[in-house]
């Protein structure tokens, strides 16, 4: 099953400029793993040194952030709108 994952502007430099990538997978987590297999240079931006998804990486399925669904276990299917969306964070010293 091929599913389209929309890529945010900030990460398109790592997907050959594509704003959408077709991937195989049954869950959000599987799609993300397939994404970094296809574009390994994305790995460091999506996952931290311990292999955990970075906190600012969000995935929306049909307009809902999967953090309020089943997280990376959220099931996906063809025809859904699936988007990678960054949150923005940072701050001062200390």
């Amino acid at each position: 099953m091929s599913i389209a994952l929309k890529i945010p502007t900030a990460l398109r430099g790592f997907t050959d400029g594509l704003n959408q990538v077709e991937l195989e997978g049954d869950t959000v987590g599987e799609l993300l793993k397939k994404l970094i297999e296809k574009y390994p240079d994305l790995t460091t931006h999506l996952y931290d040194e311990e292999g955990l998804l970075r906190s600012f990486v969000n995935v929306f399925v049909d307009g809902t952030n999967v953090k309020s669904l089943e997280g990376q276990q959220t099931p996906v299917k063809e025809g859904q709108s699936i988007m990678l969306v960054p949150a923005i964070a940072g701050g001062n010293f200390g």
Binding site: L11, R12, G13, R54, F56, P86, I88, G90, N92, F93
Partner: peptide, 10 residues
């Protein structure tokens, strides 16, 4: 360091 940890490219 906090900015770096959470920064986006581009």
């Amino acid at each position: 360091a906090n900015d770096l940890e959470k920064a986006l490219p581009f």
